[in-house]
Write a protein that binds this DNA or RNA. Structure first.
Lengths: 315, 315
DNA sequence: CTGTTAGCGCCTTCAC
DNA sequence: GTGAAGGCGCTAACAG
């Protein structure tokens, strides 16, 4: 691998002039600059990242630490990764992936954290570098999230507008902030409309939702819409309805949440509240880079809007 | 951040002795060694990776470069990531994620490559560091893959054993090696059994498969099993059958391929050929680390066995 | 504008 | 066993 010195010798200048053509080109005479650039190309010169990191005290590495077990991880993380990776790339930062088991390996200039549990905050607290969370947190750290509350309000409102008169919220049986926000969005809108808020909480699996419909089919009345907290649940609900001969979307509407890949497997294309995960990844990366360059004193919250993607499971 | 020097001063020894307690502990007197270890702990000393990389010429970073567009990427990459990340972690290597757009950012000791197209091989060829492919390649590079051919043979054999007499292979409409291998596995086994090989190729979406069933329902006869090249297709096929009142698994069997998350959304739990993605990730990482430590002259192929996960969509 | 000096934190080599 | 010197590749600070 060619070094700064190799380039300097070939171009008959000192190392510093070469270094400057890279980092402060305006300080170098144009002729020299282009000559040096040519030599760099000839030698396929790539600056040594380690040497740079050593002297500049910054690694140009951002770590994404996923605290959840990856095997329970929603597939949509891939889109998040894509958003983060692309934004970092634009600024010549590398993305490093860490898990609960590997968070200490290697150095970085900043962290994006997701899936964190209470017991992990001690570790977060002692980090020297800036931190951005993916998903809301209540400890005062910066974060990027969707407005889960508003998203469910929008879904619910849409269902009402389409003329469904009975609404059932199918939530995820977990005490996570995102789930509570979604539930609250549903309850409050229903209260405002003076309608009863029927809320069910299920494990986040399609067949659990199907079973729920199965067991409660007798009580199901046409003109009902199911506002679901995930696409998996929505697909399970839809399957259950169809198996009992119910008509979707004429008599029963189904609205999902997430909108990544799973809705491609539904027999009807699912109406779903689409989380802009790639945009969220990008936003997280952007926020972190900003913080690295100019530390912000107070908490920054970036809320990205979800958008209803209307398809065949609602009329 | 504490440096080697800080530790040395506090322990009243030279930097070298500290360095040795880390890298060659057997060369340091036990008393000294434990005293120094204590100081390192007190100061929370972490060796500076950049400085180390600079002098040792190795970064302890492995890059996973995903050449596919991430937004078309199967969710199962997450499991692959998990397998790679955990294995690397055990050896104190960091995993860096790169895409088609960011493959030049930062240095590393080796590459794991996936989703590569013909035009990318020029870039691969000029890499200085060892390379392992995820997925078969015909250019002589080391790789880790499942035996797609054998996996489909096994699926097909299983369907026959369960007494389904007519088999239809639902393939993915793409000229990828993995798809061709799967198709071939089906064709050859059927030929051996003197049965007609019905092969259909569809875009890899559930609703496309459902539509296929819809349009061909008249020609479908009981005692048919569908050997599908993906879980998405399998779920779509199953949906189609159920919508037409067909009985799964009594009259129609459905076998998928991949077995990651998608099968959790099916109304019946899907029988599927489960790719051990985490194990494959681990194998890729292991192979790469081996190559880094002792370069191998000839091509190494690691074939990981897929295993049929039997559930409710076959009798 | 360009070159010289010095040092980032660590490890290899060679003395002691 | 342990320490002192030197250098990995790069850049900030100062000189010219």
């Amino acid at each position: 691998m060619a070094t700064l010195n190799d380039v300097a010798q070939r171009a008959n200048v000192s190392k510093m002039t070469v270094s400057r053509t890279i980092n402060h080109p305006e300080q170098v005479r144009p002729e020299l600059r282009s000559a040096i650039s040519q030599v760099m190309r000839d030698l396929n010169y790539q600056p040594n990242a380690a040497a740079r990191a050593l002297v500049s005290r910054c690694t140009r590495v951002i770590k994404l630490t996923i605290f959840e077990d990856m095997d329970t991880t929603e597939p949509y993380y891939m889109m998040l990764l894509a958003g983060i990776a692309n934004e970092l790339n634009r600024h010549q930062y590398a993305l490093q992936l860490a898990t609960r088991n590997s968070y200490e390996v290697g150095e970085c200039d900043g962290y994006i954290l997701t899936g964190i549990r209470d017991e992990d905050y001690a570790w977060v607290k002692q980090l020297q570098q800036p931190v951005v969370f993916f998903g809301r947190n209540l400890k005062g750290y910066d974060y990027v999230d969707t407005d889960n509350y508003q998203a469910i309000r929008d879904s619910t409102m849409y269902a009402l507008h389409r003329g469904y008169t009975r609404l059932i919220f199918i939530g995820i049986a977990a005490d996570k902030p995102f789930e509570l926000d979604r539930e609250q969005g549903f309850r409050e809108l229903m209260a405002e409309k003076h309608l009863p808020a029927e809320v069910v909480r299920l494990a986040n699996h399609g067949h659990v939702a199907t079973k729920y419909i199965d067991e409660h089919w007798a009580t199901m009345t046409p003109n009902t819409a199911f506002i679901c907290a995930s696409d998996r649940l929505a697909i399970g609900i839809e399957d259950g309805i169809l198996l009992h001969g119910g008509r979707v979307p004429e008599d029963f509407g189904v609205i999902g949440f997430d909108g990544m890949l799973l809705n491609q497997v539904a027999s009807k294309r699912l109406t779903t509240m689409k989380q802009p995960l790639e945009a969220m990844g990008q936003a997280a990366a952007k926020l972190l880079l900003t913080k690295i360059n100019q530390p912000q004193p107070e908490q920054t919250k970036v809320i990205v809007k979800s958008k209803l993607s209307i398809a065949e499971s609602t009329r």
